[in-house]
Simulated assay, not measured.
Amino acid sequence: MKRNIVIAVVTAAALVGGGTATALAVAGDDDDSTSVTRTDDNRDDRGEDRSDDRDGDDDDGAVRAAAPGDVTAAEAITAALKHTPGTAVSAELDDGSWEVDVLAEGDTWHTVRIAPDSGKVLGAQKDDEDDAAEVRAALKGASVTAEDAAKAAAAKGTVVSVDLDDDGGDKGWEAETRASGGDARDWNVDPKTASVTPDRDDD
């Protein structure tokens, strides 16, 4: 009678950044067959490869997630105005890029998108806005630009938006900042003195 000997050797290796565990099973019988089974930690429970997930990039090359980058709000406004001259009325970090609204000559509106990591212009489009008269009235006598307001508010945290409030009696700049812990705060920036005060409506 022949004897069947089964020897199981399991070797686990943990690699930094996603290890790989490999199991070897050696069975000794009449034909001394050997089988090798590989288990890759880069596959999930469904057997799909997860190696690309660690890179944080989508297959379609989507723009990076919205977050304060190397380009400040003031720098984004400067880049937008260099591309599309006019009066910057707002700037917001949205959908992974800065969106700067510019009121150009002839009361035409443009939205200019700026890359938050390089300051390059990603695109620009003409918008159909009809409140040019209200904006120009709100800015009459103002010496503080959107860029100035963004710089002033930067003393309170990372500016993620700046916008002209042209409604009501308290016309001026509004800015939103994010602290290092992620807390958001709203501020009012005086259009003549650039003084920054907490927004009374900020909860």
Results as ranks from 00 to 15, higher is better:
residue 146 A to C: 14
residue 74 A to S: 15
residue 74 A to V: 05
residue 185 R to H: 14
residue 132 A to T: 10
residue 187 W to V: 07
residue 123 G to C: 03
residue 70 D to G: 14
residue 183 D to V: 08
residue 83 H to G: 08
residue 142 A to Q: 06
residue 83 H to A: 14
residue 130 D to N: 10
residue 165 D to L: 11
residue 179 A to E: 13
residue 134 E to K: 14
residue 123 G to E: 03
residue 166 D to C: 03
residue 172 G to H: 04
residue 82 K to F: 04
residue 69 G to R: 03
residue 188 N to A: 12
residue 108 T to I: 14
residue 65 A to L: 11
residue 118 S to M: 08
residue 186 D to S: 10
residue 163 D to E: 15
residue 187 W to M: 04
residue 162 V to L: 07
residue 113 R to L: 02
residue 63 V to H: 00
residue 164 L to H: 06
residue 124 A to V: 06
residue 110 H to A: 13
residue 95 D to G: 01
residue 74 A to I: 10
residue 133 A to E: 12
residue 111 T to W: 06
residue 100 V to Y: 02
residue 73 A to P: 08
residue 173 W to P: 06
residue 134 E to F: 06
residue 81 L to D: 04
residue 85 P to H: 15
residue 160 V to E: 14
residue 184 A to E: 15
residue 148 D to E: 11
residue 89 V to N: 10
residue 164 L to D: 08
residue 147 E to F: 07
residue 115 A to K: 07
residue 180 S to E: 15
residue 136 R to S: 14
residue 183 D to T: 13
residue 71 V to E: 07
residue 174 E to Q: 13
residue 189 V to S: 01
residue 99 E to S: 11
residue 112 V to G: 02
residue 120 K to Y: 00
residue 173 W to F: 04
residue 191 P to T: 07
residue 95 D to E: 11
residue 138 A to C: 01
residue 69 G to H: 02
residue 178 R to W: 04
residue 111 T to Y: 00
residue 80 A to Y: 08
residue 84 T to R: 14
residue 172 G to P: 03
residue 145 T to E: 02
residue 158 T to A: 13
residue 84 T to F: 03
residue 85 P to K: 15
residue 102 V to R: 10
residue 176 E to Q: 01
residue 143 S to Y: 02
residue 182 G to C: 13
residue 189 V to L: 02
residue 172 G to E: 03
residue 168 G to Y: 11
residue 109 W to V: 09
residue 97 S to A: 11
residue 157 G to M: 08
residue 174 E to A: 08
residue 154 A to G: 10
residue 79 A to P: 05
residue 159 V to D: 03
residue 178 R to K: 09
residue 92 E to K: 11
residue 128 D to W: 09
residue 73 A to W: 05
residue 99 E to N: 12
residue 158 T to Y: 02
residue 86 G to V: 14
residue 63 V to L: 00
residue 127 D to A: 05
residue 116 P to M: 01
residue 134 E to H: 07
residue 181 G to I: 14
residue 175 A to M: 06
residue 78 T to M: 01
residue 182 G to I: 13
residue 87 T to L: 14
residue 103 L to T: 12
residue 107 D to H: 11
residue 162 V to I: 15
residue 126 K to V: 15
residue 137 A to D: 13
residue 105 E to P: 10
